[in-house]
């Protein structure tokens, strides 16, 4: 009778490994086919010039990358991307937090409010963008109509380079709000009742309760939202494409949109430059996530 500490028979181990691989195989194949291969291909394309049809024609090494570094246009794109992240992530998460905290107070119809605030989650980016484009329309839009009643405006929400990025950011915040509210509501729901109760017994309420108990206990959810929102903001495409196409004067051209423009728009098929930009985007996403895990996560309290 074998003892518990003896290793399993080699044959059985092999069988188990084989079985494990067999189970893993479909996901490995899908992963290799749709993630690894395109990733490798992107690196390959980024080091090649293109022929007329976008096929790689000759090796150019790091040329696309050095060209990007020296391009003022690309620097502008990076700044725009950073601003877009800032304008969407910070108000998106804080706004959702505020709504969720307000909904904590026992008011009538809070369930209805909760569903209402979660509703944007059900909208597709495309349909929400179309709705916003109607709001923003310079000649017949609702927003300028309201402003003119106040004796203000008209503002070129999407046609003025000072406003366009902000307008796209506002639409993005709205689109993300539903998801953010859902996540934070769930987070609040999972805060153990005895902690809140103990705090209340100690006389904490309102702001004090929120600041010292609810928000710290929401740490993991908030951290999750910041990471996810940042990645989402960096990858936003639909609303930019529908609302502004990167304009006016490139003021809403984020990194992803720039990749699209170089590769497909305006009859361009510069897959080399587009791939180099895609690699830069990947590095930016990795760096953001790494920094967030390195700095923010230390401050997160996991209950």
């Amino acid at each position: 009778m074998p003892t518990a500490s003896s290793p399993p028979e080699p044959r059985r181990r092999l069988g188990e490994h084989g079985l494990a691989w067999a189970f893993l195989l479909p996901s490995v194949v899908v992963f290799a086919l749709f993630i690894l291969y395109p990733l490798g291909r992107t690196f390959y394309l980024s080091a090649h010039a293109n022929d007329l049809f976008g096929a790689p024609s000759r090796y150019v090494g790091m040329k696309h990358y050095t060209d990007l570094l020296s391009s003022a246009d690309f620097r502008h794109t990076l700044v725009t991307t950073a601003l877009f992240v800032l304008f969407t992530v910070v108000p998106g998460v804080l706004g959702a937090l505020l709504l969720v905290l307000l909904m904590e107070s026992r008011i009538r119809g809070v369930r209805l409010l909760r569903s209402a605030f979660a509703l944007p989650f059900a909208f597709s980016v495309a349909s929400a963008s179309v709705v916003f484009s109607v709001f923003y329309n310079p000649a017949s839009g609702v927003l300028n109509g309201l402003l003119s009643n106040l004796g203000l405006g008209p503002v070129g929400w999407l046609t003025d380079s000072k406003w366009a990025l902000l307008s796209v950011a506002v639409s993005t915040i709205w689109m993300n709000l539903g998801y953010n509210v859902l996540v934070l509501s769930a987070g609040i729901g999972s805060i153990p009742g005895e902690i809140t109760e103990a705090a209340r017994l100690d006389g904490a309420s309102g702001l004090r309760l929120a600041r010292s108990i609810t928000v710290p206990m929401l740490g993991p959810s908030l951290f999750f939202l910041v990471v996810i929102s940042t990645v989402n903001a960096l990858q936003s495409f639909g609303q930019i494409h529908i609302l502004t196409r990167g304009g006016p004067d490139g003021s809403t051209r984020t990194l992803v949109y720039s990749v699209y423009e170089k590769a497909f728009a305006y009859g361009s098929s510069d897959f080399g430059t587009a791939s180099a930009q895609a690699v830069v985007l990947m590095v930016v996403v990795l760096a953001c996530t790494a920094v967030q895990f390195g700095v923010l996560e230390r401050k997160v309290h996991y209950a």
Partner: peptide
């Protein structure tokens, strides 16, 4: 002159609505 941006449909809408 109204600046309705690059989208031709927006400029068309402005003319049809009589705003230009």
């Amino acid at each position: 002159a109204a600046n309705t941006g690059r989208q031709t449909t927006d400029a068309q809408a402005a003319f049809k609505a009589g705003t230009v």
